[in-house]
Amino acid sequence: MIWIVDILLLTIVVICAIGAIYVKDLLSSAILLGAYSFLMCLLWTEMGAVDVAFTEAAVGAGISTAFFIGAIYQTTRRTKD
């Protein structure tokens, strides 16, 4: 039953995306975005777009998380709002 996997993955993707916006700790937010990218990668794979999934895993989860962490070290870790 592939649609059960689909609905489960989509639910976790939405939870990760909302959590990345609302969490106060910026480092946690970056890690949540990394988890979001990995789940999107699983979704792309399940839809048959392996090349897009590869790009999502390499760029979204690998490089951009490292960039976010490198940027957070230059600012404060807590949000002010």
């Binding site: 590869f54 790009t55 390499a58 760029v59 690998g62 490089i63 490292a66």
Partner: peptide, 8 residues
């Protein structure tokens, strides 16, 4: 993709 992994 390979370049991204090499940079990572």
């Amino acid at each position: 993709q390979g370049g991204c992994i090499l940079g990572a």
